Simulated assay, not measured.
Amino acid sequence: MILGLSLGHRTVREAEHWLAMHVTPLGLPDLVACTHLVTAPYPHVALSVAAATDRLTELPDTPLELREAAERAAAEHTARRSGRAVRYPGVDRMVGTLTVGEMLAGSAIERVVVLGSATAEPDLPLDTRDFVRPEWRNGELVLVAMPHHTGGLAPFEVPNPTPCCADH
């Protein structure tokens, strides 16, 4: 079952917090929960939640004015076309430094690509920074990584990004 939700979260952090408080406690081992940036009817973050259970129906209903955004999020997740995965099988093991091969073997992530390059080699070390957010791309759950100062890789998305224009 894949459920789309749009509850008007204004930021990704707010949406992730809501997922942690309301979806993660359901204890679903096959859970894949994603964020989706949407623009209509106003800019906000919609969610898609997938698991092989009817327990997802326990989650709140999307308000009428946001249903189109929720339906779009569910459709994108169903097609495995877009969505940034926050919860997925193995996410709890994505801590510290792992090789790309260990990451692939220990999680639902299907591929690691280096920004502006090709698929990462399995023996490359990857400093997870304890923050690994893959995304659906062409039917696969893909982590985008970048070169790290230690000589290996790190996820492209950082845990606490500096807001645009923070210095002025």
Rank of each mutant, 00 (worst) to 15 (best):
M1E: 03
G4Q: 04
L5H: 03
L7C: 08
H9L: 05
R10D: 12
T11L: 09
T11C: 07
A15F: 03
E16M: 10
W18S: 01
W18C: 03
A20T: 09
A20C: 06
M21T: 13
H22E: 10
T24H: 03
L26Q: 02
G27T: 12
G27N: 08
P29Y: 10
L31K: 01
A33Q: 01
A33G: 04
C34T: 15
L37V: 10
L37N: 07
Y42D: 08
Y42M: 05
V45M: 07
V45P: 01
A46M: 08
L47K: 04
A50P: 00
A51C: 04
A52D: 14
L56V: 10
T57M: 07
T57W: 02
E58V: 07
E58W: 13
D61T: 11
T62H: 04
T62P: 01
T62D: 06
E68Q: 11
A69T: 01
A73F: 04
A74S: 06
A75T: 09
A75E: 15
H77I: 02
H77E: 11
H77V: 02
T78H: 08
T78R: 08
R81T: 05
S82K: 10
G83D: 02
G83Q: 05
G83V: 02
R84A: 14
V86H: 03
R87C: 12
R87L: 09
Y88E: 01
Y88N: 02
V91K: 01
D92T: 13
R93C: 00
G96W: 14
M103Q: 02
A105C: 05
A105H: 10
A105P: 00
E110G: 13
R111T: 03
V113F: 02
V114K: 06
L115W: 15
G116C: 07
D123V: 12
P125I: 08
P125E: 12
D127E: 15
D127L: 12
T128C: 04
D130C: 08
F131W: 14
V132R: 00
R133K: 14
R133D: 00
N138W: 14
E140R: 11
V142Y: 02
L143T: 04
A145Q: 08
P147M: 12
P147Q: 15
H148P: 02
H148Q: 13
T150M: 03
F156K: 13
E157G: 04
E157S: 10
E157P: 01
E157K: 09
E157A: 15
P159R: 12
P159Y: 13
N160R: 14
N160Q: 13
P161I: 14
P161K: 10
T162C: 02
D167W: 15
H168L: 05
